[in-house]
Design a binder for these strands. Sequence first.
DNA 1: ACGGGGATCGGCT
DNA 2: GCCGATCCCCGTA
Length: 203
Amino acid sequence: MTHACYAPLPRSFYARDPVAVARDLIHKQVVRRTREGITRGRIVEVEAYLGQSDSAAHSYRGKTPRNLVMFGPPGKLYVYSIHARYCMNAVTGTEGVPTAVLIRAVEPLQGLQLMRSRRHEPAHLDLARGPARLCEAFSVNRKLNGWDLTGGRKIWFCDATNDGPEFSVAASPRIGVTSAKDLELRFFVDGSRFVSGPRRFHS
DNA sequence: ACGGGGATCGGCT
DNA sequence: GCCGATCCCCGTA
């Protein structure tokens, strides 16, 4: 267990436009450490949300108690609830400009047994396929809203691309949104069986 | 493989 | 009151 290879991405990684961060988060890894143990996985699907110019973004209509974290500095975790479940984002860009990247799916790599017990013993492929399933498998909830992703505690993202297979990034419209359907702001590992929604996209 | 419907609840109008 | 950046189950093929 070489601690250094799971070093958290620095704030400068997040302090860029959300589309660039979204594309670059593909094949990075999520590390979650709790009392129960470590879970870790490879990010295979994300979506960019562009803030006040994006009618699908939570921050489109301005600041509210829920979306407050999106307006803060980059490199923080934004957790929200929907349909009695949780989803997680990384806050990106510049403080005051409320952009973020939703993490939609992860390929589980470590702590599979823990993930299985946190979820209801699902099929292997369904452990973290979908934003709310992912949060359940990694024990992410409202208590982690606003958490700093650069400190290497509790939860962080890291660059572990040296040991990964070849891959290419595909783009498509975002899943489940009812406005701005035309924008291709969903990015995923082309052909991966661990993504939710379409595995390939033909424009 | 794909699609429709119900569960469920916090946040916002 | 309404409505999701969802999930799961149960139809059809």
